[in-house]
């Protein structure tokens, strides 16, 4: 055998779940969002759910995506790889997916808040930006 393609590799899905199989965790998450939204409206308390903390099947994730949908806002943040921030069709419910530099998902969260923290410009960075711009104008002008 001199060619790797001669090796007959057969990959079958090793997971016991069928593509249509739901674990029930998606439903639990949707109800948790409901509770977090109620808490946010009544007390202003931000909420978050780490999707990696629960075993989710592909069908679970699909159900979450289909139920929450895409809302009005979506943004990309370029820091050590991408971060996708998408508001769902339910205002105040955000889906944040953090990618590594190689494009792997390193964190996947749902946040209940007005604006996710990572979108806001940090006050210290704003202050440092002012200094840099001032320096630039001072130097050139």
């Amino acid at each position: 055998m001199n060619n790797l393609t001669h090796i007959n590799v057969k990959v079958i899905n090793p997971l016991p779940f069928q593509p249509a199989g739901l674990s029930g965790n998606a439903d639990a998450i949707l109800h948790e969002i409901l509770a977090l939204l109620e808490a946010f409206i009544s007390t202003g308390q931000n909420g978050a759910i780490d999707l990696h903390s629960l075993p989710l099947t592909a069908a679970d994730l699909e159900l979450l995506r289909a139920t929450l949908g895409d809302g009005e806002v979506s943004a990309r943040i370029h820091v050590i790889g991408n971060t996708e921030v998408r508001e769902t069709t339910y205002p105040g419910v955000w889906w944040l997916t953090y990618y590594s530099d190689e494009g792997n998902v390193v964190a996947d969260l749902l946040e209940v808040t007005t604006v996710p923290e990572i979108l806001k410009a940090p006050a210290e960075d704003v202050r440092e930006g002012l200094v840099r711009l001032g320096d630039l104008l001072g130097a050139t002008g």
Binding site: S53, I77, Y98, V106, A107, I118, P122
Partner: peptide, 12 residues
């Protein structure tokens, strides 16, 4: 922001 991302990933 990258710092916050690091903390998010590590917390997760």
């Amino acid at each position: 922001r990258s710092f916050l991302k690091f903390c998010t990933v590590m917390a997760s």
